[in-house]
């Protein structure tokens, strides 16, 4: 296993020891538990997460002003929000399989929200965005040093909202408001209904609905997060956790000492890192090929390559 998994100091399979968090979590409740712990300990004083319409209705001051027309916001459409308490964290938990521009709140978090130590969860590309912003802050005065904990989530690709609508309402024949959970795993897109029904779609069906910008993405396991996590590699109800930076290492050690997580060595679980590596390699080589094809996309004309 090589560069496809990025640098990391340790990797385990883990789940939260908090029953309440596990009840609402997508997998092992890692993000909610980490942020919950970091809030309790004062490691962060708020976190940027992807919430939803119900959250925004309940906590209107925690979302950006320009999302205030809640009537226009559909079920399963994410809204970046700032959470300051465990109750807010739990209200915002769960994966929404469409684009949530979490980084849009990173400056505001340190302004009107008044945070000094910001947590942020996001996709690998969002981790890249905040690291670029820390090294090259163009419109981000004093923001970089306020980022106290960045948790990255594994990501194969994302979808525009309308793609999810199409997949759920057309392909899976379910109403968006009747969906309890969505999941991509075991080669399928799973839709779980509130009344207990389960629909699975082959991933092949979903490909044409992917966000085009994801096709040049060269990161699967959030290489630039302080800690990254995802379901792949671990059994159901557990998450694979990679601890990467000094900040990540110190937060993870404290959370473990406080009994926040149950862990198993990643080598002991199935399917383990081998599958993570395989998927990471698949993603990276497919997208490198896309980048190469862009270089000769036209006749003597290339599409732009952002990587220098």
């Amino acid at each position: 296993m090589g560069a496809e998994l990025g640098n990391y100091k340790s990797c385990v399979s883990a789940r939260s020891t908090d029953k309440e968090i596990l009840k609402h979590a997508q997998d092992g409740g890692i993000v909610s538990q980490l942020f919950g712990f970091a809030l309790d300990e004062g490691i962060i004083d708020g976190a940027i997460v992807a919430a939803n319409k119900e959250f925004a209705a309940k906590y209107p001051s925690k979302v950006m002003a320009d999302n205030s027309n809640f009537d226009m916001i559909e079920p399963w459409r994410p809204i970046p929000a700032i959470v300051n308490t465990r109750a807010e964290l739990i209200a915002a938990a769960g994966t929404k399989y469409n684009v949530s521009p979490n980084v849009s709140m990173i400056k505001e978090a340190t302004r009107s929200f008044g945070l000094d130590k910001v947590g942020i969860v996001g996709t690998p590309c969002q981790m890249q965005a905040i690291r670029k912003l820390q090294l090259y802050p163009v419109g981000a005065r004093d923001v970089g040093a306020s980022i106290a904990l960045a948790v990255g989530i594994f990501c194969m690709e994302n979808f525009p909202y309308q793609s999810i609508l199409q997949l759920v309402e057309d392909h899976a024949a379910m109403k968006m408001e009747s969906v309890k959970k969505m999941e991509i795993g075991k080669g399928k897109f799973w839709v779980y209904g509130k009344r207990g029904q389960v629909v699975q779609l082959p991933l092949k069906v979903t490909h044409k609905y992917e966000q085009p910008g994801c096709k040049v993405c060269l990161d699967y396991v959030a290489n630039l997060g302080d800690i990254s996590t995802g379901s792949v590699g671990s059994p159901d109800g557990w998450s694979t956790v990679m601890v990467r930076s000094k900040i990540g290492d110190s937060v993870w050690a404290k959370a473990m000492a406080a009994g926040c997580f149950e862990t198993q060595p990643i080598e002991k679980v199935k399917p383990g890192l081998e599958l993570v590596s395989k998927l990471a390699n698949e993603k990276i080589s497919k997208n490198k090929a896309t980048l190469e094809a862009r270089a000769t996309f036209g006749v003597g004309k290339a599409l732009r390559n952002p990587y220098i």
Binding site: V103, I106, T123, C217, R304
Partner: peptide, 15 residues
């Protein structure tokens, strides 16, 4: 150019 992935950095940066 088919490169935007919706991170939100641009909105954060705009003064």
């Amino acid at each position: 150019q088919g490169l935007c992935m919706g991170c939100g950095s641009c909105a954060a940066a705009c003064p």
